[in-house]
Amino acid sequence: MSQELVYERGVEDAKQFARILYVAHALTFLFSAGMLSILVLIVNYVKRPDTAGTLVYSHHTWMIRSFWWYAIWFALATVIFFTLGFILIGLPIAWAMWGIAWIWMAYRIIRGFLDLNNNRAMPV
């Protein structure tokens, strides 16, 4: 068996695993508002070095960055909710931030999944 065939099979396996991680991220955001996504994030960190030099590496980086930006915005909205929630204006601001963060994360997951299926690297 040639080296290229082994390499291609390895890349295809890595792509399939990245697809599974995209689905896992999506499910955690649907059913736990992303709180359980920390488990999937750990897997991203563990598997990313195995994909160095391939387009899959950029997808792991994309998922990692997406999670951390989402976590920052979610935490900021939570702080606003608990500090300004007693004031009428704090509630809609926090809810809007949570909603925007959730929609942004959904966009990142869908875009990443579609780009992976189309063999496109994510911007780094």
Rank of each mutant, 00 (worst) to 15 (best):
A94F: 03
G53A: 09
H60W: 06
S66P: 01
W98V: 08
W104H: 02
S66K: 01
I100F: 02
V43E: 07
G112V: 04
M97V: 15
T78H: 05
W62F: 08
R65Y: 14
A77H: 05
T78M: 15
I100Q: 09
H60S: 09
G90S: 04
A94M: 08
F82C: 04
K47S: 06
W102D: 10
H60V: 00
T61N: 10
A94N: 10
T51F: 05
I87V: 14
P49A: 11
I72F: 10
Y45I: 10
I80H: 04
I72L: 12
A75H: 00
W68F: 10
G85I: 10
R111A: 15
F113M: 06
F86T: 13
H59Y: 05
A75M: 08
A77N: 02
I80Q: 02
W98P: 06
F81N: 13
F86E: 03
V43L: 12
I109M: 06
H59C: 09
I42S: 04
V43F: 13
T61S: 13
A77Y: 06
G53W: 07
R108E: 06
R108V: 01
R108Q: 12
F74D: 03
F113V: 01
A94P: 13
A94Y: 09
N44R: 01
T54E: 01
W98M: 11
F74N: 00
W98G: 11
I110S: 05
L41Y: 11
G53S: 05
M63I: 06
I93N: 14
T78S: 13
I72A: 08
I103L: 15
A101M: 07
P49C: 12
L88D: 13
W102R: 05
R108H: 10
W62L: 14
W73P: 00
Y57N: 15
H59M: 02
I100A: 09
T83M: 14
W73H: 06
T51E: 08
V56G: 02
V79A: 02
Y70Q: 07
W104S: 03
P49H: 14
N44V: 00
I87G: 05
G53Q: 11
L88C: 04
G53C: 04
W62V: 08
I89S: 13
T78C: 15
A106R: 02
A52M: 10
G53T: 12
A77D: 14
I89P: 14
M97Y: 07
L76W: 01
L91P: 09
W102H: 12
D50T: 14
M105E: 15
I72K: 03
Y45F: 15
L88P: 13
I87E: 05
G90I: 12
M97E: 09
W104T: 03
W95K: 05
R111Q: 12
G85D: 08
W62A: 11
I87K: 07
S58I: 07
V43K: 12
T54D: 01
P49S: 15
Y107H: 07
I93Y: 11
I109P: 02
M105H: 14
R111S: 15
L91D: 09
P49F: 09
F67V: 13
I109D: 03
V79F: 04
